[in-house]
């Protein structure tokens, strides 16, 4: 969707055009769902929070135009706040086992050489969720959503340089954390061992 076109759709949506809001919804629902899914770890809460994000956006879109950020950034910020509240409210809740929530394409879409086991995936997600909130957000936006550092910067309210720096530090932390628990691909650990010699 060209940016100008999105401007026109946003203008319509902010004036109460429900069809215009529907177009925005269709454009962003998958991305917001993915973000929340990886932050919560289960489809049930991801659906519930995704619905809340869009209802909140629907109710406040009239005020959106004065905020000076892209619509996607605004949606991610709403999602980020709702996920933070969700974690706070559920801090005592037991984590949902991830085996049932591993996306199916991990099992069927990838070449055999790239397949990772559910257990590895579970450990990886577990480690990611132990990162600070902004680092989790960065990793998900970078790898799941495929956004650039500049786009991530707009969403997170940071400069591109700050994102780049945080990204590098996060990668190192995550890699070292996984290395300690030995939850990385065999070829990767082999190279690390050689490097450490």
């Amino acid at each position: 969707m060209p940016e100008n076109n999105e401007e026109a759709i946003l203008a319509g949506a902010s004036q109460g055009d429900v069809e215009a809001f529907g177009q925005l919804y269709e454009r962003y629902v998958g991305r917001i769902y993915n973000y929340i899914y990886y932050r919560t770890g289960n489809a049930f809460d991801a659906e519930d929070l995704t619905a809340r994000v869009f209802f909140r956006a629907h109710n406040h879109i009239g005020h959106f135009r004065n905020m000076g950020v892209p619509f996607s950034a605004w949606l991610y910020r709403i999602a980020h706040n709702l996920v933070a509240n969700w974690h706070r409210d559920n801090s005592r809740r037991h984590e949902v086992p991830l085996e049932d929530n591993i996306p199916l394409h991990h099992k069927v879409d990838l070449p055999e050489t790239l397949l990772i086991s559910n257990q590895e995936m579970e450990h990886l997600l577990e480690k990611i969720r132990k990162l600070s909130e902004d680092r989790q957000q960065l990793i998900i936006l970078k790898f799941v959503e495929g956004l650039s550092n500049a786009e991530i910067g707009v969403i997170m309210g940071k400069s591109e340089g700050a994102v780049k720096s945080l990204y590098h530090r996060t990668l190192l932390t995550l890699r070292d954390d996984l290395e300690i628990t030995d939850e990385h691909p065999p070829e990767y650990s082999e190279k690390r061992r050689e490097e450490n010699k």
Partner: peptide, 15 residues
């Protein structure tokens, strides 16, 4: 390589 590992592991899911 670790970046590539994350790239192949963390893939979008369809709602």
């Amino acid at each position: 390589e670790f970046e590539n590992h994350l790239q192949t592991s963390l893939r979008p899911v369809n709602p």
